[in-house]
């Protein structure tokens, strides 16, 4: 396959469980360089866990996660920290450091990892803030930001070290339509302008379909669908149909597994 060389991340036969419940049961995912890859699925399918596995914060039971041809779960701590400098991650909550201003938050990775003079850090921070449209908010503290602004600041921080790849954890959840539109626009334009590789974990179908180049759909520890947004919309798989069109009942049942309704009601007597 000629495409393999073009993949920044290659996940093979990944197994992971939390306690007794199996979260991933042998999944394979390829994330091509320079593209926006979306990983979708209902809540509780371990989408965030997948990002943490790629970031090396969790270790899988079995399987490999190759980043630049190197297996992340097998890395020593020091090597792992070096690799993470090439990744940026946007957390659902933004995960801004609450004891510093917006400016210092974005300067933080630069100050930790480079010896740049303060003047240069200032210029870099202002450039990143300009890119997300929040240069005027530099002196605010994270608690003064709205959810959408916090995510934009976090995005500016994620690109501070000019990473090759950005992982987005539920970037659209809980946003009003305007900030949602801003984020969609930002993710797409960042990806193209900075030649990034983006991975989006989300269950917001319309926004994700709008910007993704390819989509993986996860359910019950397996990949149940894979393809371009167009292919997903046209898919005849009942499962993908239920998910993409948001139907209440289908292959994913409306009811949590339980004994029969009639028995349950009568047993109370």
């Amino acid at each position: 396959m000629p495409e393999t060389n073009n993949n920044l991340v290659r996940i093979r036969d990944l197994h992971f469980s939390r306690g007794r419940s199996k979260i991933f049961n042998g999944i394979d995912i390829d994330i091509p360089r320079g593209k926006v890859t979306a990983i979708m699925g209902p809540s509780g399918t371990g989408k965030t866990t997948l990002l943490k596995l790629i970031g090396g914060q969790l270790k899988p039971e079995k399987g490999t996660i190759h980043f630049h041809g190197e297996n992340i779960p097998a890395m020593k701590t020091k090597k792992l920290y070096d690799v993470r400098k090439k990744m940026g991650m946007l957390f659902q909550s933004g995960a801004l450091l609450t004891d510093m201003s917006v400016f210092d938050n974005i300067a933080f990775p630069l100050r930790e990892h480079t010896d740049l003079p303060e003047v240069m850090i200032r210029d870099l921070v202002l450039m990143k803030l300009q890119a997300v449209g929040l240069r005027g908010a530099r002196d605010l503290s994270p608690s003064q930001l709205s959810g959408g602004m916090a995510r934009r600041v976090a995005l500016a921080r994620a690109i501070a070290l000019d990473p090759e790849m950005i992982l987005y954890d539920e970037p659209f959840t809980g946003q009003d339509p305007i900030s949602m539109g801003v984020l969609v626009e930002l993710i797409r334009s960042m990806n193209d302008a900075l030649e990034l590789t983006s991975v989006i974990v989300s269950h917001d179908i319309q926004e994700t379909l709008a910007i993704a180049d390819q989509i993986y759909i996860l359910s019950q520890g397996k990949i149940v669908g894979h393809g371009s947004p167009h292919e997903m919309n046209q898919s005849d798989s009942p499962w993908i149909n239920q998910f993409v069109h948001g139907e209440a009942d289908g292959p994913v049942p409306f009811h949590y597994p339980a004994s029969s309704y009639k028995d349950d009601m009568l047993s109370g007597r």
Partner: peptide
């Protein structure tokens, strides 16, 4: 604890900063 709950510690790790050191 709140830094952990608000993912700030995870955030540090992903910025390649070890929370134990920092």
């Amino acid at each position: 604890g709140l830094m952990k709950a608000t993912e700030q510690l995870s955030g540090l790790e992903m910025m390649a900063v070890n929370p134990v050191d920092r």
